[in-house]
Amino acid sequence: MQGLAHQLVAGIATGGIYASVALALVMIYQSTHHLNFAQGEMATFSTYIALTLINVGLPYWIAFVLTILISFAMGVFIERVMLKPMHNASVLANVGVFIGLLLVFRNAMGWIFDYTIKAFPSPFESDHPLLGGLISGHELGSTAVTLGVLGIVYVFFRFTKLGLAMRAAAFNASSSRLVGIRVGWMLALGWGLAAAIGAIAGMMIAPVVFLEPNMMLGILLYAFAGALLGGIDNPGGAVIGGFAVGIIENLGGAYLVGTELKLTLALGIIICVLLVKPSGLFGRVVQSRV
């Protein structure tokens, strides 16, 4: 029973990471109807920036905030420079650009920071387990941070004027333009936010899985699975889906398939959702008129 409880708690902790990345994916999907295959690599790149800043001698939390700001700027820059010309291009061309970004980021990381596996510091002391060995300090801390991020994102979109403008731009671009919303910049802002959320997810998972250029590849897959499970066009659903996938992954890894086939489990979830209920648990069923 203790084992099961521990797996559940660990599942919620990693699920928070998946939920964050899934949220980042859904934010870009909602406004552009494209999936950012480079989301994981961008997050890993941000984590390398954080490690560099910490190694320079900055305190953890200052490096944390700086990394978020740099990642935000990076996301805005990529949208404005690389994706703006592709707005009217085909799905294949857009997928191609994302794959190109993935290649550039992944290999630039290996080039600049080399391929060796690096340890990443955790701001939460993890020497002594809490709640009778149920949860480590880092698991508790990272869950709190991801929940905090999700809460802030919710408040931002629900209660601020800018958040409303962004939702409007994603919902109906041409009408938003008529009421004076600068839709192009709202998209760029969405990209910036997605990159920032990804950066936080990267910094929170890096102490657990260690930092290397491939760090987020598997996590991106779980995030895809989570986003699809919850509904690819529903941010709240994607967050719930992310947590669910985290729990499924931990329980499945411990009792069902073993750690060897964990990625295959994510693949299985993706295929099951797409075959059984392509709109996800909380997504809208899209009907197209012919």
Binding site: M82, P85, M86, A89, A93, G96, V97, I99, G100, L101, L102, L103, V104, F105, R106, N107, A108, M109, G110, W111, Y115
Partner: peptide, 18 residues
């Protein structure tokens, strides 16, 4: 450089698409 092929690859891919 060891990692350069990937970077050049990505850049060439994007340039071709544009």
């Amino acid at each position: 450089a060891r990692a350069a092929p990937g970077v050049i690859y990505g850049v060439i891919l994007i340039l071709f698409l544009y």
